[in-house]
Amino acid sequence: MSEFKVLFTFKVWDELAHYLRDNLAKYTNLNLIMPADDDEDTILNLASQADVLFGWRPKIELLNKAEKMKLFIQPGTGAEHLVKVFKKYGRKSDVIITNGHGHAYEVAQHALGMLLALTNHIVGYHNQMVDGKWRIRESMSEGLKNKKIGFLGYGPINQFIHKFLSPFTSDFSILKRTRDIELEASLSSKIKFYTTKEKHEFLQRLDVLIIAAPRTKKTENMIGEEELQMLGKNAYLLNVGRGPIINEKALYMALKKQVIKGAAIDVWYNYQPQEINGKTYPYDSNHPFHELENIILSPHRAGSPFGDLSRWDENIQNLITLAEERNDFINVIDLQEEY
């Protein structure tokens, strides 16, 4: 069998290195290269002999250096950077590009926590207690029982959120780019399915909208002023997909004017914010979300727990597929669809 050199472009910590080597030990044709020094020059010098690059956010210089590359594995989900850089890459049609969804359970768990904190006003109650204000008003908590919940996107994250929310309600709707007959047949007949052409009908029936979709040309600004008005003043919104799926100004104004009841947001608009007076916020200064009371703010940390090494299993599976010289890779990114 052919030998494949797998170059890790980040510093692999000991626990992960052992996990990867243990799970791939029988595949002696995989040469796992984990540099002790992951500076850019070291990685570039090693890239010319690599059959696989394994890491995040590659630069075009690295891709061009990796002349033998057959496979690129990104452990995380976000595909927008990969799409952008690979579209500039001359050999893009020859290279299989994959990402990972191994953190989907953790993201879904975080999302559920945010949603319950929002609907039950947990943060507000906590702050009242910190300020020594004991039961100063009637309960503002609102249950999820029998709420109409809609999923924009139905990949692994929203599938887990769906399972977590099933004890609360049975009224679910799913919006996907196209109809998926196999998926629909596998789920309850009570679930309502919509395509993007039916977006307005989908939104008008919801009490809670949960977004876990990739950022593409088709999804950017998919939710704007009109769509937020359709959700209405009693609706909640949760976003663990990508910030720009919701128009920034429209979201801020909808919350400020109480066009919708509240939002829980883990994904934002500016990931290189400038520090102002010792503070940094990942959104436009004209949209001070932190001043609003009807929002739960989270710093894109839903998928952060790295202690569960099983999150790497999908990436390991793709390396096994390569080692066995098969072609049935999972989580392959389509550059045309942008995810």
Rank of each mutant, 00 (worst) to 15 (best):
F4I: 08
G102L: 02
P58M: 09
S186Y: 05
L82C: 06
E220D: 10
A104G: 02
A250V: 05
L165F: 03
Q128S: 09
L116M: 07
I260N: 08
M222D: 09
R311F: 00
L53R: 07
S304E: 01
D328F: 03
S139D: 13
F86Y: 11
V85S: 08
G100C: 01
I96Y: 02
N99K: 00
R179A: 12
I174S: 01
L118K: 05
I316Y: 01
A254M: 13
Y252S: 11
L116I: 15
E225C: 09
D39E: 11
Y271W: 14
G100D: 02
Q159D: 01
F306D: 05
L30K: 04
L238V: 10
L118Q: 03
F172Q: 01
R301E: 00
G243M: 02
M230N: 14
A17Y: 14
I60P: 02
H287W: 15
D171Q: 09
T9K: 00
I296R: 08
R137C: 11
A235N: 06
I161L: 02
Y269G: 15
N286P: 08
R135I: 07
V240Q: 06
H103E: 14
I43N: 08
L144A: 05
H162S: 08
E293L: 05
G278N: 11
K163Q: 15
E293I: 05
I245H: 13
V6A: 00
A47E: 14
I97S: 04
F202H: 04
A25L: 13
D41L: 07
I330D: 05
N221I: 02
T9C: 03
V130L: 12
L44F: 11
Y252T: 10
D131N: 12
S186C: 07
S2W: 02
F160M: 09
F54K: 03
L206E: 03
R205E: 15
K84W: 12
K133I: 13
L24N: 11
R21A: 10
I210F: 07
L82P: 09
P288L: 13
T178A: 03
I181P: 00
F86M: 14
L209F: 00
T280V: 07
H290K: 01
A212S: 13
K26T: 15
N315C: 15
T195R: 01
N247L: 10
F329P: 02
V52F: 05
Q274K: 10
N315T: 14
K261Y: 04
V83H: 09
A323T: 06
P288N: 02
T77E: 14
L237A: 02
S298P: 00
S298Q: 04
P35V: 01
E225Y: 08
L297F: 11
L309M: 06
Q258N: 15
